[in-house]
Design a protein around this nucleic acid. Structure first.
Lengths: 152, 152
DNA sequence: TTGACACCCATGAAATTCCATGTGATCCCA
DNA sequence: TGGGATCACATGGAATTTCATGGGTGTCAA
């Protein structure tokens, strides 16, 4: 199975274009639908979530459990589909990040592509470093707890 | 599979015309019946629902599950079909929104097209922003329900 | 004859496609 | 194993196309 792994940092050029890291492109080539990739603001982080067709099908599956024409379904649809943008990939493997998405993630001139398995995230590099450090610290805590439990 | 995805805001011109966003048109071209699109007031929001043939079939399916000559079916038929308009698409991909529909959604000079997967909605942009915020809040509340979806 | 509307064309801005360059990594062969 | 040739890839910019929008004209009906 193909996964998005590792982190790459690329530049946004004057036209708002960014190259998708080649390894990610390779994964997308098998999974993306011809039109491009799906991208939307992360719910709980100043970042963007992105992925291919597999990600979109997850959203569909989620909504298909709700009855047609219910308030609830419309509302979730708005949040799940209304915020999504389809970013087309040009011949050189680049996408254009629209203003709205850039604002949400605070992107300026460089972006970090962070592999998360079946999807990836797009971060402002410095912010991602902070988040990464926090995550490491947390893992250390957990390991410590685990170790204390075993040995204590 | 083709879905209506993302949100676009366009202008109503002096003649009452609005361009349907090109990505939506692409979806409609495969799905719409030649005459135009179906459009009607949303049941539970100050907005319009719209879509192509697939949407119409969904409505049919919904009604066919209810017993003939039941009050419920009559009411729903009226609610769903009674206010439906077929809007023809001109050579430049534009529609004209009749007065009745514009009134229901409070449309002035700009409209937001909101992709909802199998259909899309037409909103007065500011109202939609409020709804979008509410929807996001709700999704955050319901997070646990679809932990396996968007947040992987 | 006056609107309402379908059809056609013009235009500027934005997006997509195409081509060029630099650089770092990889490969191959002496 | 060193060193040159090659390739992959990110990046920059030009050329071309798409698209939203504005406006004109003809037709049909009230």
């Amino acid at each position: 199975m193909d996964r998005f792994v590792s982190t790459y940092t690329n530049k946004i050029d004057a036209k708002g274009r960014v190259s998708i890291p080649a390894p990610f492109r390779a994964v997308l080539e098998r999974d993306a639908y011809p039109g491009g990739i799906y991208c939307y603001p992360s719910l709980d982080a100043p970042a963007l979530d992105a992925g291919g067709e597999r990600l979109a099908q997850k959203i569909d599956a989620l909504l298909s459990n709700l009855p047609d024409y219910s308030d609830e379904r419309d509302e979730l649809s708005v949040a799940l589909y209304g915020d999504v943008q389809v970013l087309s990939i040009d011949g050189d493997g680049r996408i254009i990040l629209p203003e709205g998405l850039r604002a949400h993630a605070g992107l300026q001139d460089r972006v970090a592509f962070v592999g998360l398995g079946e999807k990836f995230q797009i971060w402002q590099p410095e912010r991602f470093e902070e988040r990464r450090e926090a995550a490491r610290a947390k893992v250390r805590d957990h390991r410590k707890l685990f170790k204390d439990g075993r040995e204590g």
